[in-house]
Design a protein around this nucleic acid. Structure first.
Lengths: 203, 203
DNA sequence: GACATTTTGTACCGCTCGGTTACGAAAGCT
DNA sequence: AGCTTTCGTAACCGAGCGGTACAAAATGTC
């Protein structure tokens, strides 16, 4: 592959990881199909032949960029869920979601959703890759809640799988909202509402 | 416009409303940019010149199709919210969402989201139209909850705007989930979880 | 029945885009 | 100097969108 660093020949004029992040931003903003090769190469600061020589194709470029995005996203999810109680874990997850979806250092919303929920039949694989990423996140949440269920750390009568799905769905809805301009504060206010579902007794 | 029925000349071989519904399904399944003119005309059962003569452009076709979709969607939302209490209204809204998003007579998920959250710069208007439709739905929910707040029909300390946003975000997340294959039963199980946020005292 | 009007089907054009390759120049190592 | 690799420019192909020309077909009107 192109991961090893060849010591011979003309060296690369760009950092592979850095241009992947630039590519991710373009996909994030315009979606897979809405991201033109011209926009991609322009944002990445490289020419088309360099892109094809390095990444192979638009689809492979997307997968590499998305994989990188997933790394940091997954790290954030795990960090948020690393709280002593289910309530604290869910709250941290939702609050960090709301913050991340409205951060200023990258496009609004979430690449897993902006990337392309619906695609032309030729690009159906893109939707599948994105859906798999979201499902993996949900699995991580569910695992945390499964532990909470074993520890008796969930309100009585709560199905932990349904709760994980609820939390993920809410986060996805926040992503949709954030992409259309809903503010961080407004999202956090809705987190407050959502957390009531986790309180066993009244507020 | 093309809405009046001319009594002279060769009559139309297709029903305008019917082909709009077919077009909506294609946009729903593949998104605006992923829907090729060939796929559209093929599904609509008409030829390209007929499409352009009747609807003007791909964008205008989408707006007409989306407007029709919105009509029935809005009617469903209003019908669901027409319940005596805020709790019953929200429950009906979420349950009918979960059902509608997984119905068998049309694509999975929701056109407002599948249509194109992110688009190329040329098609930015599409994303805006879709976002406006979602915002209109949220406004309807908020209006219902605003009434509930005036009637003292909400749990104490709940911001009705944040609650409306919470409900809409959850419904949007359900749409994302449904489009990637989550079953109706699984969505309804998460509705059960969400409704806990509306119960003032313990379960 | 002749005529005007409108739609239909087929074909075509211009343009852009995605995907890809060719080729010579440039930059490094041995 | 020679080898290797990358860079930048340029071009090519097929497909899609947008739009149109033209003749055939179908209807109402005179």
């Amino acid at each position: 592959m192109s991961t090893e660093t060849p010591t011979i020949g003309r060296p690369r004029a760009f950092d592979e990881e850095a241009v992947l992040d630039r590519a991710a931003e373009v996909f994030w903003r315009h979606g897979y199909e809405g991201a033109s090769m011209t926009a991609l190469t322009s944002a990445m600061g490289i020419n088309r032949p360099s892109l094809y020589a390095t990444f192979g194709s638009k689809e492979q470029l997307f997968e590499r960029a998305f994989a990188r995005y997933r790394e940091t996203q997954l790290a954030n999810v795990r960090a948020a869920l690393d709280r002593p109680t289910a309530y604290a874990a869910i709250e941290a997850f939702l609050r960090s979601s709301a913050d991340g979806l409205t951060a200023g250092d990258h496009p609004l919303g979430c690449l897993s959703i902006q990337g392309g929920l619906a695609c032309s039949p030729e690009n159906a694989r893109i939707s599948e890759v994105l859906a798999a990423g979201r499902a993996a996140n949900e699995a991580v949440v569910e695992e945390r809640l499964s532990r909470a269920a074993r520890e008796g750390d969930l309100p009585p009568g709560v199905d932990h799988r349904a709760l994980a799905r609820f939390v993920m769905a809410l986060s996805e809805g926040f992503a949709v909202h954030a992409a259309s301009g809903t503010s961080r504060e407004d999202l956090q206010a809705s987190v407050n509402v959502a957390l009531r579902a986790l309180v066993p007794s009244q507020s």
